[in-house]
Amino acid sequence: MDRIPILKLGGALIVTIQVDMHDRLAMALEEDLTSRIAATGARGVLIEISALEIVDSFIGRMLDNIAAISRVLDAETVVVGMRPAVAITLVELGLTLTGIKTALNVERGMALIQARLDEDGDLGNARASRED
């Protein structure tokens, strides 16, 4: 089964979704991401979905779940690059993803995560940087 690659960049994990999400892929991503956050002690998760054209309630809930899990593991989730049509669909589905931070593109999303890393200073970042 294909998996979505998770890249580590400093204290952040980066996921770009470039295929159509089906339910099993989404669940696999959720699992992989959880274990990677725990393993690396990442403080930020950036999910880039500019290539994602179709969302349903399951994918929306998955995004919410990932954000909730990350929060428990002390990482912040930023979803970037959402298409207008996807945003409208999610709102019509009633999923406003209130627990998730959003940004227009990867650059601004990374800036959000970087701001958090800077705030924590070297202390919070210690484990993630050591493993670089």
Binding site: V91, T102, A103
Partner: peptide, 12 residues
């Protein structure tokens, strides 16, 4: 509110 929620999802 819908329009605002959608704009927020886009990061604005």
């Amino acid at each position: 509110l819908k329009a605002i929620a959608a704009a927020r999802l886009m990061g604005a």
